[in-house]
């Protein structure tokens, strides 16, 4: 049986949660991701940087009403990697399936 390797960048609880959220929206602010993933700012920030370095997400820093704002958006590479990850997961969960 040929099992696909799971992407180590995505095979982490928080990074997978961030990418799953971003796949469903056009873009999201850091505070939204923090709230939905129930994570700490420091940890989330580290994981966002890892995803950014891998080219899976784009991060834009801007100011809104004098407050810094971090906007995250999934990239085409991120979408493709997520799709491959889900396919790989399916191959593990359903080895006899098509």
């Amino acid at each position: 049986m040929d099992f696909k390797e799971l992407d180590p960048i995505l095979h982490s609880q928080l990074r997978l949660a961030v990418v799953s959220l971003l796949i469903s929206v056009r873009e999201a602010e850091f505070t939204f991701l923090k709230e939905k993933t129930n994570s700490t700012a420091g940890n989330l920030s580290v994981q966002i940087n890892k995803l950014k370095d891998a080219g899976y997400i784009e991060v834009t820093k801007q100011f809104s009403k004098n407050y810094p704002q971090t906007i995250c958006k999934i990239t085409k590479k991120g979408i493709e990697s997520f799709e491959d990850y889900v396919k790989a997961l399916q191959s593990y969960m359903n080895p006899g399936g098509n």
């Binding site: 095979h11 997978l16 799953s20 959220l21 889900v86 997961l89 969960m93």
Partner: peptide
Amino acid sequence: LSNEKSLEIIQQMISQA
């Protein structure tokens, strides 16, 4: 992460969004 946990996170986060 187990495979089941991965799927659970994906479903949970998509539903949150």
